[in-house]
Design a protein around this nucleic acid. Sequence first.
DNA 1: GTAGAAGCTCGAGTACACTCGAAGTCAAGC
DNA 2: GCTTGACTTCGAGTGTACTCGAGCTTCTAC
Lengths: 129, 129
Amino acid sequence: MPQDMHTIQEAADAAGVTIATLRYYEQEGLLRDIQRLPNGHRRYSDQDIAWVEFLSCMRESGMPIQALKRYVSLCYQPGTGRERCDLLTDHRDVVKDKMAALQIQLERIESKIAWYEDALAAQALEANA
Amino acid sequence: MPQDMHTIQEAADAAGVTIATLRYYEQEGLLRDIQRLPNGHRRYSDQDIAWVEFLSCMRESGMPIQALKRYVSLCYQPGTGRERCDLLTDHRDVVKDKMAALQIQLERIESKIAWYEDALAAQALEANA
DNA sequence: GTAGAAGCTCGAGTACACTCGAAGTCAAGC
DNA sequence: GCTTGACTTCGAGTGTACTCGAGCTTCTAC
């Protein structure tokens, strides 16, 4: 067994996901051709782990499992570079929009916090009077 | 009926949520003391709508219903300004963390897009050779 | 040779935030 | 007077992405 093969626990820790998630992704076809020992135990390569990290990054940034499935299946078809790239570009735009929305929401929250801080300061002042 | 009272449909449109969501929020106690006509139909004031917009902003920025419930119940208790403010501050930090994470994810996605663009350009070049 | 840790499969269960459907009421317009 | 459309309640259903539990195997250490 090459030195760069890892148990499911090691892979989960390295990629920052749970063991259950690794099995789930494999079941959903997001993670393919994971090696097995003769006893059936999975063994993950560094490349597998890097791929899981990528999947995790896409998930955390809000890409649905379905879109990821589509991306993965394109990765197994040659000549689909443009489609894959477009898929990523679409997702990038979604992420950018989400960040813009979050920025506006953040400002709204901060203005409400400022309002409370003012009110609380005024109240403290009054108490001291 | 004062002129600033709106039907549930108008309120939903104005606040950017569905009618079902308005009723759900009311049921969950996020939205209280909504006026009713004698026939039982709800009537929303401009203030109610502004409050729904605030709820919606919090939800969209990721605050769970449970936290919002806690915030709302504090709003009905006098002398809880500090707690309410702390709750908002905690959420603000969560939002900031989420934006920072999204920024990192965005960069990763963009570097992958750049990689594809390069590969596709090289491929086009090869096809022209 | 046995305890304990780690792995396996499979189907079912969970959490969250809505969302829907059935059955009914009510007012306005034709 | 009857249809239409907007509203009501209530309980049940949905979608997403995991997450868990049961029952089993397999390896290592004592």
